[in-house]
Write a protein that binds this DNA or RNA. Structure first.
Lengths: 335, 335
DNA sequence: CTGAAAGCGCTAACAA
DNA sequence: TTGTTAGCGCTTTCAG
């Protein structure tokens, strides 16, 4: 590749002048400037991002670090962030951690290493506070999605998980469901806990008593785990008439279970999923769900990052919470 | 961040020695080496990838450039590649082009700029040969997925699209379907063309005549386009009894159309999709499809790239074609 | 308005 | 076995 030195040499000028011209920083005579641009074109010049980055300490890259991409929500996040990044002159690095905190740390550290200028992080579950490596990351250009990590002073953008729980429960309640069952993910994340909290609030408000025996905790966040939980719940003699599934990946498994047992929605059971499943409108009569505003979430995450990367330093930590919406489809009965 | 110079200074040795020790290249006394590692640890040293890259011309990054992520096949590709990359010490940059060739060029050029060492490219449609920028890319560490770009001498990994067509058609034929309809994507890519070719072969072999009137070209590769095409096809007085949908995104739209028209699979129509749709097993009686071996494809793509990036130069261009499989679910009738 | 020079952090000849 | 030196490509004072 041609370098600015090649251009300088060819034009018998100094590389400093070339640099100034190409970046329109500092003075350089219009005439010369044009000549420089022409030869740059001729030689097929493109700046070396590594050199620029080394010198300026800005890489114009962001990274997205998340547990996995097997969730449509993650993919949507990714898609939206990528578009925003591109539009703002940033490229994006992506890394999946599979819930492994060591991997997570490895990639978040690339921030300090200078490979990227900012990071959108969806933290995996923490087993103990000691594992928390984030406090040792110097560069604080990190925005978290949907997880609150206490006392870390990082920007957070989340959707209102408590509201989501309330909405879902209210919906079941006002559709006449009274015996409510729940399939829960492992409650390791604040997200899951808040959803549950919201459900409880909603139940209280509607005068519904949630039976412990109908609240099943899945062993993991996989379709298989969801199916296992649903299998158990649905093989009981006494069954709920409405079901809340607090994680869309679990929902997939629950639907498999229902299909095997020849139960249909909403005839045999009402169901509300937290987050949509892909093609949810095509499954049975359509899956009713509480959905997050992913484009807005991505926008908020990126703006915060951008402020940290390009704005004033010392900006106070921000926490943004966006409202969710219940999308009614056919898995709950109509009024 | 601490640098090797900080370590060198603290230990009153030269940075070269530190470098050698840390990278275990060249000689350095075991004792000293250990001391170096200890202080590196103490100081929280991490190498600056930009500096390393600038010096060595190796970034240890690959990029994945594709039209979009709204296809589960793309996402699977991404997931698999990311795992392979991580396992081999590479990080991955992702960019979606939205079919825009300028964007595509911009990101592929990062190869020459040195930001990444290799690129997996899913080219968008080309309107004319003049737009073909790829010949001007100097660094040939590019592996294409499922698109053959003639005369470019780039590695290609594809699944056998012709076989896919044959399999799908044979399946319909041997299930007794005779009046075969097809929903086609715009035939801008070799992939679509080869699938169609395979269908024709399969039809010939089975003694089925494909009626032009039942072959509809969708205007785009979106669910909406698929729905529109299906709407038109299915509102005819004379209808096919078996339907081949040559693109899974179109399949989603076709299924919407069927649902609106209250047609069910396989009672009213047999359907085979090219590539699965997400949660395809949950839609109706399940969607029968011809699927690509994405993990193997990703592996092949990454190995080729790795050979180019780390192996001997001058390796001849490779073209790998992997077999597809038909997965029978419920959208075609059983024997 | 332009150039000389220093240096970002690291590696790699070469010398000692 | 270690150090010296040069330089990857670029930006940025500082002088002129």
């Amino acid at each position: 590749m041609a370098t600015i030195n090649d251009i300088a040499e060819k034009l018998h000028i100094s590389n400093a002048t070339v640099s100034r011209a190409l970046r329109s920083s500092g003075y350089v005579k219009a005439e010369l400037k044009e000549k420089i641009f022409r030869t740059a074109e001729e030689l097929g010049y493109a700046p070396n991002p590594l050199a620029v980055g080394l010198r300026t300490r800005r890489s114009h890259g962001i990274s997205i670090v998340l547990p996995s991409m097997n969730n449509p929500v993650s993919v949507e996040l990714l898609e939206n962030l990528e578009k925003l990044a591109d539009r703002n002159g940033y490229h994006v690095m992506i890394s999946t951690t599979d819930g492994n905190i060591e991997t997570e740390r490895k990639y978040v550290q690339l921030l300090d290493a200078g490979l990227v200028d900012g990071t959108v992080l969806v933290p995996g579950p923490r087993r103990s506070p000691e594992e928390e490596y984030l406090q040792h990351i110097r560069k604080r250009n990190i925005a978290l999605f949907n997880r609150d990590l206490a006392g870390l002073s990082l920007d957070v953008v989340k959707s209102d998980a408590v509201q989501a729980g309330r909405l879902a429960m209210e919906h079941l309640a006002c559709r006449g469901y009274r015996r409510i069952g729940m399939i829960l993910p492992p409650l390791e994340t604040s997200l899951a806990q808040e959803r549950l909290e919201g459900c409880q609030e909603g139940a209280d408000a509607a005068g519904i008593r949630l039976e412990e025996k109908w609240m099943l905790r899945a062993r993991g966040t996989t379709p298989a785990a969801g199916k296992a939980a649903a299998d158990e719940l649905l093989s009981r003699q006494s069954r709920p008439d409405g079901l809340l599934v607090l994680d869309n990946i679990l929902t997939v498994g629950v639907l498999q279970a229902l299909r095997e047992k020849n139960l249909s929605l909403p005839e045999d059971l009402g169901l509300v999923s937290f987050d949509d499943i892909v093609n949810g409108e095509l499954v049975g009569a359509g899956i009713t769900y509480v959905g997050q505003p992913m484009p807005q979430i991505a926008e908020a995450l990126f703006s915060l990052l951008l402020l940290r990367m390009e704005g004033q330093p010392g900006m106070a930590r921000q926490s943004i919470c966006l409202p969710v919406r219940l999308i009614e489809r056919g898995s709950t009965r109509r009024l």
